[in-house]
Amino acid sequence: MYDMYHEDLLDEAKNPNNYGDLVGADVTTTQFNASCGDVITVAIKLSADKTKIEEVKWKGHGCIISQAAMSVLSEKIKGYDTSKLQELTKEQILEELGLPQISMGRVKCLLLGLSAVKKIL
C-alpha cells in the first residue's frame, strides 16, 4: 500500500492555506459529510463583473484528507473563472495532494470542500 499520509499532506492539513473568516464575502456556502458529521464552510469574494474568484477563505473541521484537500483547492481557485469551477475533478485534487488514488470510503472526504465550492454557482 502506498504511503498515504506523506509529510506534505500532513503539513497541508495542519497548516492549511486560506483558513479563516472573509470580511465582505459575496457568497458563503456550507457542505456536510453525512457519514461522519464533518463540515466545511467556504466564503468567496468575486470580481466586480462576477466572473472571477478574487479571494477565498474557509473554515471547518474534519479528517486530514478533507482539510488538506480544501487547503489545496482554496489556493487553486484564487483568480479562477467561476465558469470553470464545474470542470474541477477528483483527479485534479488527488494530483494536488500527491495521492495516486483514494479508496471509495474516502472520496466524500476528498470532495467535501469541492462540493462546497461548486455550490457557489
Binding site: M4, Y5, C36, D38, G62, C63, I64, I65, G105, R106, C109
Partner: peptide, 9 residues
Amino acid sequence: VHAHDVAQV
C-alpha cells in the same frame, strides 16, 4: 486525530 484517519492507518 479524526476517526477516518485512525481507521485508515
